[in-house]
Amino acid sequence: MSRHILRRIILLIPMLIGISIMSYGIIRLAPGDPTRMLADPEMLTTEQMEALRVQLGLDQPIQIQYLRTMQSLLTGDLLSFKTRQPVMEMIAERLPTTAGLTAGVLIVGFSLGMVVGVLQALRPSTRLDEALTFFSLFGFAVPTFWLALMLILIFSVRLGWLPTSGIRPTNTAGWDPLAVAPYLVLPTIVLATNLLAIVARYTRSSMLETMGQDYLRTARAKGLSERVVTVRHALRNSLLPVITLLGAQIPYLLGGTVAVETIFALPGIGRLALDSVISRDYPVILTINLFVAVLVLIGNLLADIAYVLADPRVRLGE
């Protein structure tokens, strides 16, 4: 297995090069010249705009621009068009917020989603199953921004239990977990509601399918308790499709953070990405794209590894 993982990791390199070329190409297909988007129209003369274009390297052929951008990225001195700060530093400053949020959402979404799905599968077509189906479909269908605003109005404005927006109290800095946690509760609920619904639906159907398998009848016939049958035999085997979700959900989650970070005024990667797209800050967009690509590739790799751990029948690369 370790050889397989190593091979997968080596394969990441050509994949990332391909992704970088494609994302740079797509970014450049968007209309608009960064100089015009960024410059103060009334402040700068045509000559000043031209000087700015040269300074940003936009006077070069596109392939040269791409190679220069990649070179700066790899040597760590790629600068944002807009802020002239190193892109890596900008992302590093935003990363803890998005990482904390996404981790929370994955934990809450997967654990609660699996519990809900198992409960439904154990009591199919009962009132409980129908109620949970209703709520998970509701969670799946409800628009993120609407749910976010409703939660803010109820829990922050009316009840005053939780802070409205931001990542920590205004007069503090750093990442004290106790200070930050209350700020992440509502954003986590918003994003986890959606994920929970997906995980619950997957778990339910997968579990129902497993419950009908012959080997479960055998297990029961052997006199195993219902708890052992459910947890050790049924649940473990039902997990495979759910684990696949883990890798597949990461890009959706990061997409969802754009809206959630905007509504909750969180200083995360999603908002940085949105701002950068609007101002055509090519270096920042490219770096974030590559960063997300790495996460997705690693997420898929981890899902594959988790497969092996969950199902001894799967033997990677052998």
Partner: peptide, 17 residues
């Protein structure tokens, strides 16, 4: 504070933030 969404500004003003 840099708050991008006007609805959030409204909520923060209402909640005293």
């Amino acid at each position: 504070r840099f708050i991008p969404d006007p609805a959030t500004t409204y909520a923060e003003l209402s909640s005293g933030g």
